[in-house]
């Protein structure tokens, strides 16, 4: 018997959103335009969080002090993404990574690039946990997180 047709309704919807960045993140992105990575320091636990927050999520108090952190840091972990997914604008393969910038107390999520990403075996030799990476700036600044183009391994 022929397979019964599976009747479905197809749908795709586009709806606009306008989400406020807020004062702290607006300032953070303005600093990025000047190629400076700024965090905020908690007066209670002394942690420096990047990206900055207006309040310390742990101590639950206002965070007022801006602190500039290094553009270099240590690779805490990484993943070689080889899977395209809908609405993802970054071309595969790419490396998502968590970086502990010198002078900060939180992991900074960004990408590692500047090496031949198509040769996976080479990538595994070059990209190491605990290895050092450095920010590479996008010459064109848009006031968003991709003003840092990526982080490259430092040897």
């Amino acid at each position: 018997m022929a397979k019964e047709e599976h009747r479905i309704v197809k749908g795709q919807v586009t709806v606009p959103y306008e989400l406020a960045l807020g004062r702290t993140w607006s300032a953070f992105y303005d600093f990025l335009k000047d190629e400076r990575i700024m965090g905020k320091k908690c007066g209670k636990c002394s942690r420096v969080l990047v990206p900055p927050r207006s309040f310390c999520p742990r101590c639950y108090v206002d965070m007022d002090e801006w602190v500039e952190v290094s553009q270099e840091g240590v690779l805490e972990t990484w993943v070689y993404v080889n899977m395209p997914f809908f609405a993802q604008e970054i071309r595969i393969p790419f490396i998502s990574a968590q970086i502990r910038l010198d002078g900060s107390d939180s992991g900074f999520i960004h990408q590692v690039a500047g090496i031949d990403l198509n040769d996976f075996d080479r990538v595994r030799e070059t990209v190491k946990l605990g290895g050092r990476v450095r920010a590479v700036w996008n010459p064109e600044k848009r006031g968003n997180i991709l003003d840092i183009a990526y982080f490259e391994p430092v040897d």
């Binding site: 959103y17 989400l19 960045l21 993140w25 990206p51 993404v81 997914f85 993802q88 604008e89 970054i90 790419f94 998502s96 999520i109 960004h110 990408q111 968003n144 997180i145 991709l146």
Partner: peptide, 11 residues
């Protein structure tokens, strides 16, 4: 979030 994590390719 659309400000920071999503543009970096997180899921």
């Amino acid at each position: 979030d659309p400000f920071y994590l999503r543009p970096t390719g997180i899921n």
